[in-house]
Amino acid sequence: MAEDTAQGPGRVLVAVYAVFALAAGARAAVQLAVQFDEAPLAYLLSALAAVVYLAATVGLARGGRGGRRTAVVACSVELLGVLVVGTLSVVDTAAFPDDTVWSGYGRGYGFIPLVLPVLGLLWLRHQAEEAAEQG
């Protein structure tokens, strides 16, 4: 089946990703439009996070080879982002006066941003194995 990644538990994952794409997207749009000058770096990262969540959502929802590849890239960038931004926000608080989704390793969002890419990558690996078995 082409839509494998969006079935069963995968659908739950897509639902969580969609919620985060929505939350991060709304936040970034407002920050960029209204107060871009205050912390350009943090707000641009917010926007990047929103785009990554959207890409992961679409990749997981579409499934198939292409969808899985998109989702793997998005989840990897997301994991990297949450680790790098999380560390930077702890080390250099001046550059991040306003919280982004990834600040403090996603502390403001119950650390879900940290757990989500790991779950996503595990699920994608499982799906890729199933696809390989079916040939």
Partner: peptide, 18 residues
Amino acid sequence: LWARTEPTRWAGTVLGVA
């Protein structure tokens, strides 16, 4: 809407996430 198109037991969790 999304939970209704999921034919497995995971439909409830999708709705729960929302």
